[in-house]
Nucleic acid binder design. Structure first.
Lengths: 192, 192
DNA sequence: AACCTAACAGACAGATCTGTCTACCTGCAA
DNA sequence: TTGCAGGTAGACAGATCTGTCTGTTAGGTT
C-alpha cells in the first residue's frame, strides 16, 4: 500500500511533455516518438501508461480542462461576490490567456478540428464545452437573468470567439471587445 | 487561343475533391494519394498544378473564402437596405451553415489549428479573418455606429464563436443566441 | 504527317508514424 | 536470496505520406 503514489513520475513527465507539444504544434503534428524522446522515457513505458496515442490525447485534454476551468473560476471569483460581475469578470481570463506567449487558440476547438465526431477525443471536447456552458448558466441564474440559458449561450459564444480569434490576431482588441460586449449583454439581461 | 479555359478540368476536379475531403476530415488527415485517387487524376498531373500539398491547401482556402464571403454578403443583402439590419441579417448565414449536413466548424479556424504561424496556410487564414472584419466594419460605419471598430470586433467575435460551437453542439440554439445578441449589440451601438 | 501539350498510369525513394517485442537493469520486499 | 514491479534501450514490422521519375496515350495545330 505504500507504492510511491500511483501517478508515477514517468507518466507525469510524458503528460507534461505532451501538454506542451500538442498545444504548440497540434496533435497530429506530434508523433509519439518525439514525446518519448523529449520526456526521456522508454517506449515500453509510454505504451504501458497510454496503450494508444488517443489515450494520451484524452489525458492531455483532461489536463487542459483542469487548468482552463481553474483560470475561469479564479477570474470570476476575483470580480467580487456579485454573480453579474462574475459573469463579466470571467472575461479577464480570456485577456490573460491571449496575451500569453505561444498562445495558439482554444485547445479544445483545435482538437475538435483534428478529430472526427464520435471519437473519444471529439467527445472530450464536447464534454468540456458543455461543462463550461452549464457553469455559466448557473452563474446567469444566480445573477437573476431573465433568460439564463440564452445569456449563457451568448457569453460562451463570445468566449469561444475570443479564444479562436486570439490566435489569429495578436492585438488585444478582441478580448477587450469581448468583455465590453459581455458587460452590455449581462446588463441588458438582468435589468429590471 | 482556344485552349479549353486555363482552369483545366483536371485542376478543377482536384480542387473540388480537396474541398470536400479537407473540410470533412481535416487537412493533415487527408493525403495527396487519396485526393489523387478520388479525383481520378494522375500523380504527375496533380503535382503539375500544385507543386506541393500546401499549394493545394491555400487554393482550398481561397475557394472556401469565396463561398463563405458570398453567403455572408447574400444574407446581409437579404436583410434589406438598412445597414443596421444587414449587420444582424448576416447571422442568418451562420444558422444556415450550422444546419448543413456535415458541418464541421469554420474551415479557417480549423486550418489555423493544423498549421504553424508564419506558414502560407496560416497567413491565408489571418487574411480571411481580417477581410471579414474590415467588411463588417464598413457596414458598422454605414449603420452610424458610435464606435464602428469595436462593434465590428464584437460581431465577428460572435460570428466566430458560433462558427466554432456549431460543430460541437448540434442544437440550433447557438446561431439563434448569436443573432439575438448581435441585434442587442447593434441596437445599443447605434441608439441615439 | 509531324509535333506538342495535357493528361494518364504507376513504380519508386525516403521519411515518418504507430504499435510490438525482446532483453536488460534496479530497488525493494518477503 | 529470490522474485517482482517498473523502468530503460532500441530493433522491428507494417502502414502511410510526400514528392520524383519514366513512359504512354489522346487530341489538336501546323
Amino acid at each position: 500500500m505504500t507504492t510511491t503514489a500511483r501517478p508515477s513520475a514517468a507518466r507525469e513527465r510524458i503528460l507534461e511533455t505532451a501538454f506542451a507539444l500538442f498545444y504548440a504544434r497540434g496533435i497530429r503534428a506530434v508523433g509519439v516518438d518525439l514525446i518519448i524522446a523529449e520526456s526521456g522515457v522508454a517506449k515500453a513505458t509510454f505504451y504501458k501508461h497510454f496503450p494508444a496515442k488517443d489515450d494520451l490525447v484524452v489525458a492531455y485534454l483532461d489536463k487542459v480542462d483542469g487548468v482552463w476551468t481553474g483560470q475561469l473560476e479564479a477570474a470570476a471569483e476575483a470580480a467580487g461576490p456579485d454573480p453579474a460581475d462574475q459573469l463579466v469578470g470571467l472575461f479577464d481570463a480570456l485577456g490573460t490567456a491571449c496575451r500569453r506567449e505561444g498562445y495558439r487558440g482554444c485547445a479544445f476547438i483545435n482538437a475538435a478540428a483534428e478529430s472526427q465526431p464520435g471519437t473519444a477525443v471529439h467527445d472530450r471536447t464536447v464534454a468540456h464545452k458543455t461543462a463550461v456552458l452549464d457553469w455559466v448558466r448557473t452563474l446567469a441564474e444566480r445573477a437573476g437573468a431573465r433568460d439564463p440559458e440564452s445569456l449563457a449561450r451568448s457569453l460562451t459564444l463570445l468566449l469561444d470567439g475570443g479564444l479562436a480569434s486570439g490566435s489569429l490576431d495578436a492585438s488585444p482588441d478582441a478580448p477587450k471587445a469581448a468583455k465590453a460586449s459581455a458587460q452590455a449583454l449581462v446588463e441588458a439581461a438582468t435589468a429590471a
